[in-house]
Design a protein around this nucleic acid. Structure first.
Lengths: 159, 159
DNA sequence: GCAAATTGCTACACACGTTAACTATATTGG
DNA sequence: CCAATATAGTTAACGTGTGTAGCAATTTGC
């Protein structure tokens, strides 16, 4: 036991048992599998998520829709789309009936990049699943979904 | 099934089953419990981790040691310590035998802030544990530790 | 001893998460 | 019709993660 863990004046959980911390470290570990693959193609994980979503989408979605499917917030997505657009991996087309909206589509360059990275990415997933075991993997994703659905009830100050 | 999930040209997992995504969303959910508490005192989660670690430490640790215990990176910790120092919540003292090192300690103001927030934080942990059930909670933290210990084996280019 | 390598920490660049403000376009109500 | 409101998206500001580079103090190896 180290010095820092020895005392606990404030009656708090040690860090290793703190759920947010444990989640962050676990995510960090899994990302260590993927980051090298993506970095080799100058992509961040979020950029990759966007490309992957667009590649899988049969039609060009609007920004809002894309944000929901990639779990990105508007401002982040705006930046990511600017970046990907400059690199010619995606394209934007204004909606005909509503000038506020824009349809985002993946370009041929974008598609071939996805096709290049996809198998490498899959291999990393397989590596993780193997090490963890399919049972534990399924167990974990199930628990994570439950946690993701948790909401604080003390939403005071609701107008 | 939505449009984006319908097709999957690249043979990849849908987003909701991607482990890094699931971990991120789960963390996001848990943080929704704590953020209001910390925000009320102008603290970020990382700043709170540092204060909590210092409060629990019997002696003033060096920056390196503190980084390990809070799972923060050096550059991040540097910024956080500057911030907390300006606010008078921590103090730095150069090590006597090695001028590169510095010992970080929590001030009385810092301690009283921790004492104020700690019970509120604990209440949020209890809320999460209750909703999830103690069994699931333990199960989850155990799995997360296993995942956190995963390392990619394909560390090519090892000098 | 003193140059070379190492260590502890900081600075900087780039990207994302979050919140709030802002612009431009559409829609609604009187 | 036109003002008031709502919506889609962007911009701005701040803090953090990651990676790289840098500086100063210390240790090492000859």
């Amino acid at each position: 036991m180290t010095e820092l863990e020895a005392s606990n004046r404030s009656d708090l959980l040690p860090f290793t048992q703190s759920l947010p911390m444990a989640l962050m470290r676990a995510r960090e570990s899994t990302m260590r599998f993927f980051r090298p693959v993506l970095a080799a193609h100058e992509l961040t994980e979020q950029q990759w998520r966007v490309l992957r979503a667009l590649d899988a989408s049969p039609e060009a979605p609007e920004v809002n829709e894309l944000a929901q499917h990639t779990f990105l917030l508007g401002p982040s997505l705006t930046r990511i789309l600017s970046n990907l657009s400059e690199r010619g991996l995606i394209a934007r087309a204004p909606a005909s009936h509503d000038q506020r909206r824009a349809h985002i589509s993946i370009t041929e360059d974008g598609r071939s990049l996805v096709a290049t990275i996809a198998p490498l990415s899959s291999r990393q997933y397989e590596a993780i699943t193997e090490r963890l075991g399919e049972n534990r993997y399924r167990q974990l994703t199930k628990l994570l979904e439950e946690v993701a659905d948790l909401r604080p009830d003390t939403e005071e100050a609701r107008p």
